[in-house]
């Protein structure tokens, strides 16, 4: 199953990845990161299709995609 990883200490919490994920598999992490932002995290167990839309739109290059 494809998956993504998020570099949580680079994420500024703009949430653009959430707005483009076709499967709704990215959610906000309630725990603050070292930048003082709420980063995003990947919801495991869903049906990620590895489209990489999240990585394409991420302005901070925090997302890596595996397929």
């Amino acid at each position: 199953m494809p998956k993504i990883t998020v570099d949580k200490n680079k994420c500024k919490g703009c949430l653009l990845c959430i707005s483009v994920c076709p499967k709704g598999l990215i959610v906000v992490d309630k725990e603050l990161n070292s930048l003082g932002a709420n980063p995003v995290k990947f919801k495991t167990g869903g049906e990620c299709i590895g489209c990489a839309f999240c990585a394409l739109i991420c302005p901070d290059c925090c997302i890596e995609v595996y397929k």
């Binding site: 500024k12 919490g13 302005p59 901070d60 290059c61 890596e64 995609v65």
Partner: peptide
């Protein structure tokens, strides 16, 4: 499992000063 999208070599792995959501 192959990595299909990763950090480009020509971009440093630093946190930018740009605002969240900046193009």
């Amino acid at each position: 499992m192959d990595k299909i999208y990763t950090h480009p070599r020509a971009l440093r792995k630093t946190v930018t000063h740009y605002c969240p959501g900046c193009g």
